[in-house]
Nucleic acid binder design. Structure first.
Length: 467
RNA sequence: GGUCCCAUCGUCUAGUGGCCUAGGACAUCGGCCUCUCACGCCGAAAACACGGGUUCGAGUCCCGUUGGGAUCACCA
């Protein structure tokens, strides 16, 4: 049995977007699932648009998602001799020919054809002119004019194309660079790709590529065209639909597991299961369960998954991940283990790392500024006395465990005949400066007696100044 | 416009001719829990695009219509 080879072949003209990430992931999962080889290949034959920054951005994006490759990255720009040898072979065998039609002229003919409602395909002007190679000539593939080409697709089934619909595509530009359709085929042949998994926007290219395989006498790989990802308005996903760069989600505080899980479930399913670990994905992924129709990118569901994975993640790992976000707020953490102890109090209430970091400042600042509106609402005249008593109560506690405090407060409230509800918000304001926070007992446990006492004393002083 | 693909709740989907009174999840709405905000739990509303066939029986098969998408480059 032949070992499975898949590949992800982005063109380095921009960042890694979610659609690309998903096709990369499908290829990766399929290879991992079957113990095959996953290859990364950079399609940079479009010299004008390809950049090194984009290449790096794509590598970074894959790295963040944890999609690793076994071979590459290969660069098409470094494989020019290979393409050239195949082109020479095709030309010498009469299966390709030089063409000297001017681009502007072709463009004009194409537009005219479109305007008249005819097929805008190459008219074969240079097909039999036996033109010699020149400075402005391109190489065209001599495609069959009759018959049909069938694409057997693992997700779409069989699709029949009339060869008459296809035209003689350019396989080498006048500057010597191969074109996409040709370079892909040559690379997939030489890298022994067995399964081509890509977006279904390539389905129409496939018959041309199959013709090339046949002309070269090479076996045709399996194809799997996965549906595209659309925006909320059903048009192709783009910036105006929100963030589309995978790394933008990293910056917004998303976890890679969430992105991976979300992207996998968009267009693929395994019964009713929604949550998949990386290992489960590898174990359960199959092309048969990839759907046929396009899917709409749903940020809400991604956010929900992110919240889920934040709840699940190990606090120590989250501490490391949240560090840069805290720094963005000007908070420098000296004691990471203290941070790690604070993390669990925010886990169930944070959908992103950004949100988590946003709920943490009070853990690191003693000089808190109380919310203006809350002062008026909760710092009522009777509060000062109560807070003084609470301070004494807390000072008397041998341990600062949440259960002890909870018990102490229960006793205290019963003795003084006051509802805990009445003192919760003022106390929260004194300890966190805000009206929204993790539970008081868990938060005090993390803060520890020293900070709590200090803040209470400061709060009482503030209350005294109000009178 | 030609060609190609697609079509189950708002969204992602389960469903492979009888298990469908169409299931799950996100979002929405209501309730419970509660020291705030969340989490969690319970519940509600919400779909087989339409029209013809085939069949004892169709969300499931076929055809058409409609709608959406892709593609027609010396881009990939």
């Amino acid at each position: 049995m032949v070992e499975i080879h898949t590949r992800f072949s982005p063109s380095p003209t921009g960042y890694l977007h979610v659609g690309g990430a998903r096709t990369a992931m499908f290829n990766w999962l399929f290879a991992r699932r079957h113990g095959g080889t996953f290859i990364l290949r950079i399609e940079d034959t479009d010299v004008a648009r390809s950049t090194e920054e984009a290449t790096q951005a794509i590598l970074d994006g894959l790295g963040w998602l944890g999609i690793d490759w076994d071979e590459g990255p290969y660069f098409q720009s470094q494989r020019l001799e290979i393409y050239q040898s195949y082109i020479d072979r095709l030309v010498s065998e009469g299966k390709a020919y030089y063409c000297s039609c001017a681009p502007e002229e072709l463009d004009a003919r194409r537009k005219a054809a479109m305007a008249e409602g005819r097929k805008p395909k190459y008219d074969g002007a240079c097909r039999n002119r036996d033109i010699e190679k020149g400075p402005d000539t391109v190489v065209r593939f001599r495609a069959p004019e009759h018959g049909t080409t069938v694409v057997h697709d693992l997700v779409k089934g069989a699709t029949v194309f009339e060869n008459a619909e296809l035209d003689d595509l350019i396989i080498q530009r006048s500057d010597g660079m191969p074109t996409y359709n040709f370079a892909v085929v040559i690379d997939d042949i030489s890298m022994e790709i067995t399964h081509v998994i890509r977006g279904d926007d390539h389905l129409n290219n496939t018959p041309r590529q199959i013709l090339l395989y046949e002309a070269l006498g090479c076996p045709v790989p399996e194809f799997a065209h996965v549906p595209m990802i659309l925006g909320a308005d059903r048009s192709r996903l783009s910036k105006r639909h929100g963030a589309t760069s995978v790394l933008a989600y990293k910056e917004m505080g998303y976890l890679p597991q969430a992105m991976l899980n979300y992207l996998a479930r968009l267009g693929w399913s395994h019964g009713d299961q929604e949550i998949f670990s990386r290992e489960e994905l590898i174990e359960k992924f199959s092309l048969e369960n990839v759907g046929k129709s396009a899917g709409i990118f749903n940020p809400d569901k991604l956010l929900w998954l992110n919240a889920h994975y934040i709840k699940e993640e190990d606090p120590n790992k989250l501490a490391q991940l949240v560090l840069p976000f805290l720094e963005q707020q000007g908070i420098k953490v000296e004691d990471v283990s203290y941070l790690a102890r604070a993390i669990p109090t925010l886990q169930p209430r944070s959908k992103t790392l950004v949100e988590m970091a946003g709920g943490m400042p009070f853990y690191f600042k003693d000089e808190l500024e109380y919310e203006e509106k809350a002062i008026q609402k909760f710092f009522t005249p009777d509060i000062k006395g109560i807070m003084q008593q609470i301070l004494e109560e807390l000072k008397g506690l041998p341990f600062f465990r949440r259960e002890d405090m909870e018990a102490a407060f229960e006793r205290f409230c019963a003795e003084k005949d006051i509802k805990f509800k009445k003192i919760a918000q003022p106390l929260r304001l004194i300890l966190t400066g805000k009206t929204v926070s993790p539970g008081l007992f868990e938060l005090m446990e993390v803060l520890g007696p020293e900070r709590v006492v200090k803040r209470l004393e400061r709060g009482i002083k503030y209350l005294a100044s109000m009178a």
